[in-house]
Design a protein around this nucleic acid. Structure first.
Length: 428
RNA sequence: GGUGACGUGGGUGAGUGGCUGAAACCACCAGUUUGCUAAACUGGCAUACUCUUAACGGGGUAUCGGGGGUUCGAAUCCCCCCGUCACCGCCA
């Protein structure tokens, strides 16, 4: 969530940010409501503190009076303290209520978009930041989308996943499974080379963790919830990995903190239908390697650029055509200040598939997470960033479509050491 | 899942109702002394909220795993929860 002090000091910027996100005018009133409520909270806090201070002083006196045997005086003060306690508990309740309301409102305000974010309503307004400079691959007549390729090649089986669980849970088999494992290995190795520490986190997290990175409360319906323990299946490794640094105060010399991890990701994807979700385009469980950085506020945009380079490098090595989009305000995630999406061209579907999203959250996550660093005597919130490097299912989709040949599905050179084969041939 | 013990500041650890935001030691930072290093000595060393100040700073409140209760007053007493450790049960 936004820092309250920032919001108070930059009301106009926050409101302008809401406009960039194409949120309705009445949303802007929330900003003024927050300030009014915070004023009330401060007044109540001061009132309560004064009452407690008085109570503490009197209690001290009472102790002394009892010791010196002045019972009557002590009793009189004791009566006064009891009055104060009544007042204090009433004030405290109002204060608690104000805090809860304030937090609820604050949770409703999305991050302020970076100044470079174009205004816009939807993905149609996203800006092409870096286009694909080569030609787009043209496949010969009779080329197939990946879900049809899976009928002829040992790759994956969607119906089988439906039998075991439900739709959207593919089962990868044979060389298809091996290809997945090879990609994961390759991505982790590349991240390690770039200086990221490898993390293997829990796949199930508690409420506090899901809240800190911003999945709760705004994306509640997107996650699988485990009722009995009140836990959530992670929708991305970002959640447990970033939370490693929840409630931590860093030293400036600790920056940058670079972590990577491979995990399955679980997403309910409620309300998604149609051609966009065919095959591996949108599934409930997929593998992903995530990169996360925690950085000094002055350097986080350099870091974002570095992460773009890293992701672009992976796609170059996989020889996949891609472009980079700068998301417009309307398409920007609730918690992000700036996001670049990587899209890979899927030649058989003749469309771009999103395979990575690289974002700077500035202090939006670190504020919820209380992730700070020492800046001289003061502590300040750090910046958090993350990106997919990369998300597997769609990479696999594009890879097998683009590389289909009469001799089989060709494996990019860089992966061959991992797969142990250079092509996938048709099923017998 | 059962039984028992325990949970104090960056670490070790004292503290069983007021004088304890918390001894002492270690670590860390600044300074003094000293051919260098080391040692010794002196001082500093939590976080959040809030009031006040132009600022430096100063005042107040809260925090001893979390929540609730008893009391004029709680790290200290009571209840619930969470966690750690040990033993038993179960088990990849």
């Amino acid at each position: 969530m936004l820092e309250l002090n920032y919001l108070r000091a930059n009301t106009q910027r926050v409101k302008a940010g809401l406009r960039v996100r194409s949120l309705p005018e009445e949303e802007q009133r929330i900003v003024d409501d927050i300030i009014a409520l915070d004023d009330r909270r401060k007044a109540l806090q001061t009132e309560l503190d004064q009452l407690l201070a008085e109570r503490n002083a009197l209690s001290k006196e009472i102790g002394g009076l009892f010791k010196s045997g002045k019972r009557e005086e002590a009793e009189a003060k004791r009566a006064r303290v009891n009055e104060i306690k009544e007042e204090a508990s009433a004030t405290e309740e109002q204060l608690k209520a104000a805090k809860v309301q304030l937090e609820d409102l604050l949770y409703k305000v999305p991050n302020v978009p970076h100044e470079s974010v174009p205004a816009g309503d939807s993905d149609e307004d996203n800006e092409v930041y870096q286009d694909w400079s080569g030609g787009l691959p043209q496949l010969p007549e009779g080329s197939l989308p990946h879900w049809e390729l899976a009928q002829y090649y040992p790759l994956f089986d969607l119906e089988l996943g439906t039998k075991l669980t439900g739709s959207g849970f593919p089962v990868y088999r044979g060389k298809g499974a091996r290809l997945q494992r090879s990609l994961i290995q390759f991505f982790l190795d590349e991240a390690a080379k770039a200086g990221y520490e490898e993390i293997l986190p829990p796949l199930i997290v508690n409420d506090a963790t899901a809240r800190a990175t911003g999945q709760l409360p705004d994306k509640e319906g997107q996650m699988y919830h485990i009722e009995r323990e009140d836990f959530y299946l992670i929708p991305t490794a970002e959640v447990p990995i970033t939370n490693i640094y929840r409630d931590v105060i860093l030293e400036e010399k600790d920056f940058p903190i670079k972590m990577t991890g491979h995990t399955p990701c679980f997403r309910r994807e409620a309300g998604s239908y149609g051609a966009d979700v065919r095959g591996l385009n949108r599934v409930h469980q997929f593998e992903k390697v995530e990169i996360v950085q925690i950085q000094h506020p002055d350097k986080s945009y350099e870091t974002l650029e570095e992460m773009l380079q890293h992701v672009g490098g992976l796609l170059d090595k996989l020889e996949l055509p891609y472009r980079i989009l700068r998301l417009c305000g309307g398409d920007l995630g609730f918690t992000a200040a700036l996001t670049f999406d990587f899209e890979v061209y899927s030649a058989a579907q003749k469309r771009w598939l999103e395979v990575s999203s690289v974002s700077n959250f500035e202090t939006y996550q670190s504020n919820r997470m209380k992730l700070r660093f020492k800046d001289g005597k003061q502590s300040r919130l750090a910046h958090t960033l993350n990106g997919s490097a990369l998300a597997l299912a769609r990479i696999v989709a594009a890879l097998i479509e683009n590389n289909q040949t009469p001799d089989g599905i060709m494996i990019p050179k860089v992966l061959q050491d991992y797969t142990g084969f250079d092509r996938i041939e048709k099923k017998a």
